[in-house]
Design a protein around this nucleic acid. Structure first.
Lengths: 174, 174
DNA sequence: AAGACAACCGTAACACTATAACAGCTCGTT
DNA sequence: AACGAGCTGTTATAGTGTTACGGTTGTCTT
């Protein structure tokens, strides 16, 4: 999982705060889609219309979206209107590192740094519901360390923080 | 069975004889239950029969249990058989630090160290399904640190690791 | 002791989340 | 043309969680 092509232009890289700022999603969306297509081609996977549209929908939202919310959008645009349509597309995106599933919310969000860190930590603002990705490597290191003290070998870790983002804190949200 | 099912004799609070009442199940968690009761008393909360039995059920299981699994047990013992019965008891236990909810599993487990660290990290063995609690303080410290780089203030963190426990690894589980 | 009140337990009904099983389509290969 | 693989769509069902309401009980007040 270490070979990765050139960084996409819209990669907001190391500044997770960017995710909490309003910005032009249409722009980051097309860059992300291009990057996605390139990554998938390497893996011999196809970004079919439903999958592409599903990813676009996720990219357009600053919040995580429930599967049925995504499904409603898809159905309104002429795709199938049964749950598996959305779940299959979402599962495909997640398994190819293009989207994430948030356990705490039963929801999905586009991956903003595809190819970077496939299982980041998530910062979920309880006021505006925006979701940001944070570097999980140092956290996972400590977790693995603590776990190995119990003889436990960590394979996958879910790290999700609920709290208040900078803008909401500035806006005086409790 | 009569139409008014028998309920576990576990009158709480004002009856001093309650302390002497023998358990139906000999093994136990009576120490944990006593501790729980003491903790609750301090908080002005009551360990009613349903709540007590729910905690016992969780304590008897090394795995996390789904709400409906708990509900089946409760219903079989004469308590209500509708979902809110289980969910209310579980929510009470969680909110008083006597049980935990595992987001990844949609399941609940008794807290093994009540009064210690109320939101530990969880180590979930994918082979035997057992759940262990690990010290989360150092992990949360790193998480808060990473998050603060994005101006995010962490309030609650979900840290759940999936992997292989020592015994399963020793038994040669993949 | 009687009434007011809050907490608790139970019920029915419903909402939300997710999967199983199966059928048809398309496309590349033989 | 026939085949198989992968994708999309369908119906039906399973699993998880909540809302709304009513009755009981225990406590506090008067």
């Amino acid at each position: 999982m270490s070979d990765r092509p050139a960084r996409p232009a819209a990669d907001q890289g190391s500044d997770p705060a960017a995710a909490f700022q309003p910005h032009d999603h249409g722009h980051c969306s097309s860059a992300a889609l291009d990057a996605a297509e390139a990554r998938l081609a390497q893996q011999g996977a196809r970004l079919t219309p439903v999958r592409r549209r599903t990813l676009e929908i996720l990219l357009e939202s600053p919040r995580a979206m429930g599967a049925y919310e995504v499904l409603d959008r898809l159905a309104a645009e002429g795709f199938g209107r049964q749950p598996p349509v959305a779940y299959r597309a979402l599962e495909f995106l997640v398994s190819h590192g293009l989207a994430h599933r948030l356990q705490r919310l039963n929801a999905f969000a586009a991956c903003l740094h595809p190819g970077h860190d496939h299982t980041p930590a998530f910062l979920i603002c309880r006021s505006c519901d925006r979701v940001a990705e944070a570097e999980a490597a140092p956290i996972r290191a400590v977790l693995s360390d603590v776990a190995s003290g119990a003889g436990f070998r960590v394979e996958r870790a879910t790290i999700e923080a609920l709290g208040l983002c900078a803008s909401c804190a500035a806006d005086g949200a409790a």
